[in-house]
Design a protein around this nucleic acid. Sequence first.
DNA 1: GATGAATGAGATTTCATTCAT
DNA 2: AATGAATGAAATCTCATTCAT
Lengths: 213, 213, 213, 213
Amino acid sequence: MTKITNAERPLRKDAAQHRQQLLTAAVQVFNEQGMDASVTEIARVAGVGIGTLYRRFPTKEALVDALIREILSTTIQMARDAVRSPDGVGLERFLEASSAYQAEHAGYLRRLWNTDHEMVKTVRQLIARLLVDAKKHGLIRHDLTSTDLSLAMFSLLGVLEATLPVAPDAWRRHLDLLIAGMRPAAADLPHRALSPASLDKVLATHKASLRPE
Amino acid sequence: MTKITNAERPLRKDAAQHRQQLLTAAVQVFNEQGMDASVTEIARVAGVGIGTLYRRFPTKEALVDALIREILSTTIQMARDAVRSPDGVGLERFLEASSAYQAEHAGYLRRLWNTDHEMVKTVRQLIARLLVDAKKHGLIRHDLTSTDLSLAMFSLLGVLEATLPVAPDAWRRHLDLLIAGMRPAAADLPHRALSPASLDKVLATHKASLRPE
Amino acid sequence: MTKITNAERPLRKDAAQHRQQLLTAAVQVFNEQGMDASVTEIARVAGVGIGTLYRRFPTKEALVDALIREILSTTIQMARDAVRSPDGVGLERFLEASSAYQAEHAGYLRRLWNTDHEMVKTVRQLIARLLVDAKKHGLIRHDLTSTDLSLAMFSLLGVLEATLPVAPDAWRRHLDLLIAGMRPAAADLPHRALSPASLDKVLATHKASLRPE
Amino acid sequence: MTKITNAERPLRKDAAQHRQQLLTAAVQVFNEQGMDASVTEIARVAGVGIGTLYRRFPTKEALVDALIREILSTTIQMARDAVRSPDGVGLERFLEASSAYQAEHAGYLRRLWNTDHEMVKTVRQLIARLLVDAKKHGLIRHDLTSTDLSLAMFSLLGVLEATLPVAPDAWRRHLDLLIAGMRPAAADLPHRALSPASLDKVLATHKASLRPE
DNA sequence: GATGAATGAGATTTCATTCAT
DNA sequence: AATGAATGAAATCTCATTCAT
């Protein structure tokens, strides 16, 4: 008869509303203060008590994970939309759209791709399809791999984090450069691409390297 | 073999040794735990008391600054060496060499380019010279600017931070991609480059965005 | 029985109790150990965690200020009561009553009169009225000024701090002497009185001289 | 031929000089920063290493004690001079002269009268003689005791510490008031004087109440 | 004897998390 | 269910004192 509050079953209406207020507040606070912002501040901005925050998210970590899941969810949707693009342009459209979207969530991007979550795998699979399609239409060089695109995401992350507050569009220019490098060319890229297995490890380890203890 | 970057008067022999131990320990600890690592831990790893650390570096900030100055100093030297390369290959040599060097200092790279320090300006000037030379020899596209190269540094930073512990050479593949994008091409890059003035602002703001308050 | 001096909204019942415990503990600890006593010790004596202390008083300074405000508040009340005394005896009554009260708070008296707080001004105005009234009834010499009375407060402070633990009533004898000096006399006091403006400066500077940096 | 500054044996010439430099520096630093000033700062101002300071004074405490002994020594000399004054004016002369002298050493006055040192007893005995003489000439009321004068010293201390930085002569006016109170009068002082034995205890305890541990 | 580098206990303050109201 | 008071571990930094050079 009692509802279960966690992922599985639906929340009571006010509880669901609080959950959303908290996520919104977290986005704002993390963007303003970085991920060292205190949970108390997030609760304050959300207009709820800190106890409520902890009832919704048993841990600061859990709150961040929820945010990331939101972003990934949107990103997956963008990738799905891009897959339906004609003439192999889906990949470029996706890179542009997802970067633009992430530019609104700079505060915790660093954590974005860390989860070894199923959703990340989904995104990667969709990207792989986009890549195949783009190559098929001759838009992208043949020696470019799916893992190269993951590295490109980290690359855009680095640029975003550095430039966002002052030059919110600088990443577009950098994406130009990346895409120029992906175009078909006479000579192959000198070094071998990262293997998918290694990338898995990267994503799994990433978390540890950010949260020491 | 590392030179002491400090100016004042020479330190006593044992003091100089402790100073170096502390810097080495800081590199290790920051790499392992990120920049939130405690100074106590650094002192412990260095095998000295915490008071000694604070005698040498009156603030955690000062310790980080010293590390950064060491890296910048080495980077400047690399750029100067690269300037003497023939046939316009200096730029690529520098990008490769400095990235390889920075791969050893991932823990606090984020802070690296923040200082509006004279040394950063020196590096940027040297890079500008390398770029001119590379264009002159037809190795690099004409619409590439000096600020594009700064963004490329942030880009490599992002890749380094994400991949280093697990795939310590992944950045080389990404650098391939970046350089491929810098090669002369039929079409110009679609977006306008970041202005040098904006880049200045980026570097000045960078710090704040990392250390919220 | 002590009133809560804070303004905002009423505290929860238990919180208010803790607040009072902390103030009481602070009085005790400061009296026993002087104002260099650690906040940790105060929390321990109050029987609460140190985090609780910092929730109630965000700074050691704030804790001391709260204590001082309590004392000043009581002192103002005493002065108001004294003003209603007949026959010009209010001044002497006030000096006696406020000294007796302050004898219970020796630990931080030094800080007491430092604030350029509105409350201190109120006390001084009330004292001035008491002085006028006492002169009118011929109890006090005409060349005595309001600033002389402020100096007399510092004087009593000095005696209190020195004698309190061992001879808790010694200040009464000294007050006798001071009052004897204030009685009408043939000859004026040789030196000129401190100007009110100078006293203002004294009160403003007092703090600095106690907390060096 | 060499004067003995310390208790036991004579110091070498440079050692004696360092000792004096340190005492002078301590006076200055304590006056500027209060007694919480660090020993390192004192050594710096004295122009010697901190090791030298600790060779001369095995403890910060010891350094302060030495300062106090210097002041007491001068004060004794002043009292001896005063004793030779004619017509019972010695007491007033002494009070004025010693206050003026102490005004130059406000930084650690609080500690001044704390030692249960022989010198303090000497001062008190001399003051007692001055008091007898002053009474004999009818300048001072008969119910004033020697302990009242000790309290008056604390009283002046309180005024000095509060006013010195801003109104360096305010103590003179307060001394006027004290002396006015000491003049012969019709009515006795209402309260009984502090007994000499109690005063002994006051002086002995004073120290403890200032240095908690 | 002099120096100042090294030491480490201790002080203040923050913040994720728990739990009484 | 919601609140926010309480908690205490941990972090940075200071300073009296010791001891190698």
